[in-house]
C-alpha cells in the first residue's frame, strides 16, 4: 500500500520557551505516512510523541510552545506556513485526532448528537436533518448499538469504551485522509483495548484513512501497525517496518523497550527496565541523548550527535546509533 505520502514531516522542530530559554521538545523529526498506512510512533512518556502530533494539528499551546523549524506537508501543502483560518478548514476535515482520555475528551454538558453534528456542520454545507442522519450512520459504523438513542445521551451516560468509539466516529465523520490517534487505548481496559484497535484497523481498511498511532505499548504496535518510528527525547532513534523492529532491533533503546515487554511464557521474578529516566527536554546539549542510560556507551557518544544510519541488509530500516556506522549489529 505504498503510494504518495499523505503526510510528510521534514526536520520538524517544536520548542517551548521559558525563562531558561528555548527547550526543544521535538528536535528535527522527519517521517512520512503513506496513503492508507498505519504508522506507529513509540516511546516513553515525555519523548515528544504528543508534541509531534499536536504540532501536525497546530494545536501547540502558544505561547509557550512554537514550531520553530521544518515542514509539515499534508498532500504537499506546508501546514507550518498555513494561516489559522486554513488550519480550521483542515482540522477535523482532512486531519482528525483522537485522544488518550475518552472520559474527559467529550464536553460533559452537550449531548453526543450535538457534538457529532457540530463537527459535521463545520465542514459541510448540509442541513440539520442530513447531518443528524450522517452522525447516526457514523455511530453505527463504529459499532455502537442503539445509535439514535446515544445521540441524545450525555457523555457521562456512556462507558469509556463507548466514548472512545464516539470519539472515533466524530474524528472520521468528515472522512479525513489522516487520523492521528494519541494513545487511544491507554485509558481503557484490556478487552476494550483490543476492540478499539480492531475497530481502527477495520476502519483503516474500509475508509482508506491513514493512521498515525502514538503509543508506548509495543503490543499495540505489533497488532496494528505496518511501520514503526521509535522516538527518544525529541528525536527519532529508529525507523523500520513492524516485523523488522521486533525481529531485528538495532538501537539500544529499542532493544531495552522490547526487553521490558512482559512475556507470559517466561516466569520472570522482575521485569526488565531501562535504568534511569527520559532526560528533561533541553538538558542534553551534546552527544547522543540516550548515552546516559545506554549499556553500550563509548566516548564518542558523549561528544558527537549520531546521525541516522541505514541498516545493512534491511530495507527501510534506519537507526541513530554509532554502533551501526558500518552496519554492525548490537549483540546483547
Amino acid at each position: 500500500m505504498t503510494n504518495a505520502p499523505v503526510l510528510d514531516v521534514k526536520q520538524l522542530r517544536t520548542s517551548f520557551f521559558s525563562e531558561d530559554g528555548e527547550i526543544p521538545a521535538v528536535d528535527e523529526v522527519s517521517f512520512s505516512v503513506n496513503k492508507g498506512e498505519i504508522l506507529g510512533i513509540v516511546g516513553e512518556s515525555g519523548c515528544g510523541k504528543s508534541v509531534t502530533s499536536l504540532s501536525i494539528m497546530k494545536l501547540i499551546p502558544q505561547p509557550p510552545g512554537k514550531i520553530v523549524g521544518g515542514e509539515i506537508l499534508l498532500n504537499g501543502e506546508n501546514l507550518v506556513a498555513s494561516s489559522e483560518k486554513r488550519m480550521r478548514e483542515i482540522r477535523g476535515n482532512e486531519v482528525a485526532m483522537i485522544f488518550q482520555e475518552p472520559m474527559t475528551s467529550l464536553n460533559p454538558l452537550f449531548t453526543i448528537g450535538n457534538q457529532l453534528i457540530e463537527g459535521i456542520k463545520i465542514h459541510t454545507k448540509i442541513g440539520k436533518k442530513e447531518a443528524f442522519q450522517q452522525a447516526v450512520d457514523m455511530l453505527k459504523l463504529v459499532g455502537l448499538p442503539r445509535a439514535e438513542q446515544i445521540m441524545n445521551d450525555y457523555p457521562h451516560q456512556l462507558s469509556g469504551g463507548m466514548r472512545q468509539r464516539v470519539m472515533i466516529a466524530m474524528a472520521l465523520s468528515c472522512h479525513p485522509k489522516l487520523l492521528i490517534a494519541d494513545e487511544p487505548t491507554t485509558a481503557l481496559d484490556v478487552t476494550i483495548q483490543a476492540q478499539i484497535l480492531s475497530l481502527m484497523k477495520d476502519l483503516n481498511e474500509k475508509l482508506d484513512t491513514a493512521i498515525v498511532l502514538i503509543t508506548h505499548d509495543l503490543g499495540v504496535v505489533a497488532e496494528v501497525c505496518e511501520r514503526v518510528i521509535v522516538m527518544y527525547a525529541g528525536k527519532v532513534v529508529e525507523e523500520a517496518p513492524v516485523m523488522e523492529i521486533f525481529k531485528n532491533p538495532k538501537h539500544p533503546y529499542t532493544l531495552g523497550l522490547l526487553q521490558s515487554v512482559p512475556d507470559v511464557r517466561e516466569n520472570k521474578e522482575r521485569l526488565y527496565s531501562i535504568p534511569g529516566n527520559v532526560p528533561k527536554p533541553g538538558s542534553i546539549k551534546t552527544g547522543c541523548r540516550f548515552a546516559a542510560r545506554c549499556e553500550f556507551v563509548h566516548d564518542r557518544c558523549l561528544t558527537d550527535n549520531p546521525p541516522l544510519y541505514k541498516v545493512n541488509g534491511a530495507e527501510e530500516h534506519t537507526v541513530r546509533c554509532f554502533l551501526h556506522e558500518q552496519g554492525g549489529a548490537v549483540s546483547g
Binding site: 474527559t104 460533559p108 457540530e118
Partner: peptide, 26 residues
C-alpha cells in the same frame, strides 16, 4: 485547559465558539 476544549479545536471549530459555547457553559 480541559481535554474537551482540545477536542473542540481539533474539530476545526472557531475559537469564538470554543470559548463561548464549550468553555463558557462549563
Amino acid at each position: 485547559r480541559s481535554d474537551f476544549i482540545r477536542t473542540a479545536r481539533a474539530k476545526g471549530l472557531r475559537m469564538f465558539w470554543v470559548v463561548y459555547k464549550h468553555s463558557l457553559k462549563n
